[in-house]
Computed example of a mutant assay.
Amino acid sequence: MPRRNSAPQERYEAIELLLLWEGRVSRSRLLDLFTIHETLASRDIAGYRLLYPHACEAESSSKSYVCTPDFQPTLTQGVFSEYQRLVGAAGALTEISIGIPFESAQFDATTIRPLTFSRLHQAMRSGLCVKMTYRSMSTPQPHERLIRPHSLIQAGPRWHLRAFCEKSGEFRDFNLGRISSASLADDADLPGIEEDLEWQRVAVIRLVPHRDLSADQAQMVREEYMGGTAAMVFNVRASLVKYVIQAFRAAVDPGRERAPEHVLMLQQPVDLPNEVQWKR
């Protein structure tokens, strides 16, 4: 259970999220999530009800409070990712507290060495360069690279490092699981985050139902992914566009990447990175 220390405002937000996503809140439920005394849990619920008297009502049979039909979130945005973070579904799979049976097919598949990570972390924090031993698909044998890392990226089950690479002369993403050692290179000087133009630039991604789908299938996809609207629109760093497309298995070339294997496609993009440009 993801029990943790908290501030009163965080617990008020948790009450609201529990009401919104589970339909009820109770003292015991708050005790599942936070390291607090049961008296404080009761006081939090009472305080929330005092501030928002129309949000919930008592249900004596379950010793809980259930949300009213007109309940609307005011402290939170009402998005599922907030609830995921609250119950731990966005973190370790062993820390789920959802109240019903739960399984996840999302796994973190990158093996990260603590010492290597700590040095990379220090380099990013201090703006230093790093000599690392790396392997890649093009060069699977261990070899040395001089890089200047600036950011971590989580993409599905893998973690990457965004860095300028002396060998390639450009900013690239490096898989953390392929870095076997790292040491600080205090005397080296390579471009930093402020010169990573693709990192600084924001690209707009529009995902729409695949053009091969029938009208009924396309409508189903819109309701499933887009809340019934015409498209999903994301504003992301240009260097991360490929990860978003991969995460949704969206077709970049709908003539080759066909439905139903791909139910989404990238709407004809404007000013996207070359590797994801519409192919004709």
Results as ranks from 00 to 15, higher is better:
A123V: 10
R29C: 14
Y83R: 06
C56E: 09
R113D: 14
A92Q: 10
T76F: 05
G78W: 09
S97R: 15
F107V: 15
V79S: 06
T76W: 00
F102V: 12
V87K: 05
V25T: 02
P114Q: 01
L18S: 10
A109N: 12
L31C: 05
A14R: 03
K131D: 11
L120K: 08
L51E: 15
I96F: 00
M132S: 00
I36E: 02
L50R: 12
R85C: 09
Y48P: 08
M137G: 02
M124V: 00
V130T: 04
F80R: 13
L40R: 03
S81R: 14
P114C: 03
Y48G: 14
F117H: 07
T116Y: 00
V66E: 12
L19F: 07
T139I: 07
R29V: 15
C129V: 05
E22H: 11
S60Y: 11
F117L: 10
L19P: 01
I96H: 12
E57Y: 09
R11K: 10
V87P: 12
E13N: 14
P101Q: 02
R85W: 02
R49E: 05
D70Q: 08
F80D: 13
R27W: 00
C129E: 10
H37E: 15
E103P: 02
L30D: 07
G47W: 02
P142W: 07
K63T: 03
T39I: 15
Q122L: 05
T133Y: 06
E82N: 07
L20G: 10
S138N: 14
V130I: 10
P101F: 00
A55L: 14
L20F: 08
L50A: 09
S81W: 13
Y12E: 04
S64M: 00
S104R: 13
E22L: 11
Y12C: 04
L115V: 11
S28R: 15
K63S: 10
D44N: 11
Q141V: 06
R49L: 15
L75W: 05
Y12N: 05
T35L: 10
M132P: 06
P73A: 14
D44T: 12
L30I: 11
H37R: 08
I15K: 09
Q141G: 08
A92F: 08
L17C: 13
I112Q: 13
I96C: 04
L50N: 10
R11Y: 01
R11E: 00
P142G: 13
G127F: 04
I98G: 01
Y65W: 14
V130A: 01
E95K: 05
Q106A: 13
L31Y: 01
R49M: 06
L128G: 02
L93R: 07
A58P: 05
Q106P: 06
G91C: 07
F107S: 06
I98D: 00
Q84R: 15
F71Q: 11
D44R: 01
M137N: 01
T110Y: 01
I45P: 02
T139L: 03
E103C: 09
L120F: 03
V25S: 07
F34I: 03
S64A: 11
L20Q: 14
H121W: 08
E57S: 07
A41C: 03
G88N: 03
L18A: 11
S64N: 03
E95A: 13
A58S: 06
P69H: 02
L115W: 12
I15Y: 08
